[in-house]
């Protein structure tokens, strides 16, 4: 019985506590005043609109490995691999159908190069469903996203022009298998 009275009192005190509600998208101070825009706090790791990021040197991180397309539970990612004159792989096209995407973030988890990342932005409504199909030019950003220092081709063992085998970070030169010397 006492606990009932205590809970009555505690709930009553909540009458004077501030509200948790964020009146997205707009809020009025009084009912006659002009609405002002309000946005709820979105954590940096919020799973929203998907972007493709670039290496610190400004080139694309995506190596078109297709892991994101494979792991995607709703099959909303489509891409085609191609190669440039330096030997770097990159997607010829990269397409995400956001009318299917469920923002699960599995593509981000699967990505071996930190290229595909989810961002705290969810305002991407469209009246036409075709406008929800994002091509590479819509997805690619001029930035490194959540991993500023990571550069895939500088840690990968694959040869590209300007970086031979054994020249990557934390990589020893290749062993000469024809020599008997230790």
């Amino acid at each position: 019985m006492i606990s009932q009275l205590v809970s009555l009192w505690k709930v009553f005190l909540h009458l004077f506590a501030s509200n948790e509600t964020v009146q997205y998208p707009s809020k009025k101070k009084w009912w006659w005043s002009q609405p002002t825009k309000v946005m709820p706090y979105l954590a940096p790791r919020y799973r929203g609109r998907i972007v493709l990021t670039r290496d610190p040197d400004g080139e694309e991180r995506c190596v078109a490995c297709n892991l994101c397309a494979v792991v995607c539970p709703v099959d909303c990612i489509a891409l085609q691999k191609t190669e440039d004159e330096n030997g770097r792989w990159y997607p010829e096209f990269f397409r995400i159908n956001f009318s299917r995407c469920i923002m699960c973030g599995m593509c981000e988890e699967a990505c071996p190069t930190y290229a595909i990342q989810l961002t705290p932005d969810f305002e991407m409504c469209e009246y036409d469903r075709n406008n929800l199909v994002y091509e590479k030019e819509h997805l690619l950003i001029n930035g490194v996203g959540k991993y500023p220092d990571y550069s895939f081709w500088q840690v990968a063992g694959k040869t590209i022009s300007g970086k031979n085998k054994g020249e990557a970070q934390n990589e020893s030169p290749p062993v000469d298998v024809h020599s008997l010397l230790p």
């Binding site: 709930v11 009458l15 506590a17 509200n19 509600t21």
Partner: peptide, 15 residues
Amino acid sequence: AFLQDRLGPNRLGPF
């Protein structure tokens, strides 16, 4: 709503 730290119906007309 106020007792549960919410706002309740506040869209139509004053309050």
